[in-house]
Simulated assay, not measured.
Amino acid sequence: MINRKKVARLAGVGAAATIAMGLFSTGAANADTFVPLPGGELVKTLSDGTVVTVRMVGESATISPSMGSTPVHRNAWVSGSAQVEIAGGGEPGGYIYPGYVVGCQVNITGGGAEGGAAASVDSEGSVSPSAETGGNLTIGPGQAKSFYVLDIESPDDYGNERHSVLNGFQGSTGSVTWSDETIGLNGCGGYAQARSFIGVEVITESVTTWVTLWGQPFSLG
């Protein structure tokens, strides 16, 4: 004889499990996505024989569903560490400018942005120091923008607030690390990508030059 109450209880358990699985699947679909990135290394010999090594280590991105929940919004948090070593050059030093280029429906894999996109990158792939700070960007299709991750506050000679996008160093080594810097992208209805860069101004006894290391592009969705 079939116990109908027992069957009803089991059916109720099955229904509850189905609902729980549905909620779990929805949460998984909207969960953050961690993207480990390979970083990179660039070694360049300057005209005076100085050897400059620039490294990106510990680079990663966490892609999150947009707070706006629309196809034209993207959110990401990025982390990494820029390291510079200088061999030679007397008493060298320099400045480190870490940042990112973000593009909407544009190729940024070749260094900077291609296809007429308006990123602050010159013909040699060096990012202009006039790139804006802060990762809250509004970009339409076919456009790209670059920004610096540093925004260091300090007083100027008159006590007013001054903001700096660089980290200076003296001697043969320098570094700067950032964690969970925000990229907030608005206005891009198509695919979007981002790519890190480390711009380094190297100063030696006889040479002042700019070196740029590019990271691997990654999708913002």
Rank of each mutant, 00 (worst) to 15 (best):
V72A: 11
G142E: 13
M1Q: 12
Y158E: 15
Q105R: 08
N107F: 09
G135Y: 07
F169P: 00
G110V: 02
S60C: 08
E153P: 01
Q216G: 04
G27H: 11
V72H: 03
A119W: 13
V106G: 08
G110F: 12
S25V: 04
E124V: 13
G190H: 10
F218G: 07
A131C: 11
I203N: 02
T133M: 12
G58H: 04
V13E: 13
V78I: 15
A131N: 02
M56T: 02
S126Y: 06
V207S: 12
T109N: 10
P217N: 08
N107R: 03
N186P: 09
F147W: 01
S120C: 08
E85T: 14
S175M: 02
A11D: 12
V102I: 11
V200A: 05
N107D: 15
G142N: 07
F169W: 13
Q83A: 10
C188P: 02
L137W: 09
F197N: 02
K6N: 12
V165A: 10
G187N: 15
T109F: 15
E153Q: 09
P217E: 04
G190K: 04
Q83C: 02
S60I: 06
I152W: 03
E161A: 11
G171I: 00
I152H: 06
A113N: 03
G199H: 02
A144T: 00
G27M: 09
V106Q: 13
V35W: 00
T138P: 04
G99Y: 06
V43W: 00
N167Y: 07
T18D: 12
G112S: 06
G39Q: 05
S120E: 13
S66G: 12
N167P: 01
T173N: 08
A28D: 09
G111H: 08
V149F: 09
G22S: 14
A31L: 03
I86M: 14
F169I: 00
E153A: 04
P129C: 05
T208I: 07
V200K: 03
G171Q: 05
S47H: 09
W77E: 14
S219M: 11
F218W: 11
L166Y: 14
T212N: 10
F218L: 13
L185R: 00
H73P: 04
A82F: 05
L213W: 00
G221K: 05
V54P: 00
G190Q: 07
G12Y: 09
D32Y: 10
T53W: 01
G27V: 01
I2L: 14
M1S: 13
W210H: 07
L150M: 08
L150I: 04
R4H: 15
H73C: 03
N30H: 09
T53Y: 00
T208Q: 11
M1A: 14
I19K: 15
P38N: 10
R4E: 10
R74N: 12
L23K: 13
Y95S: 14
G88H: 08
C104Y: 03
V78D: 10
G88S: 06
P65T: 01
Q105C: 09
V43E: 14
E114F: 15
E161V: 05
G135H: 01
E161R: 09
G49N: 00
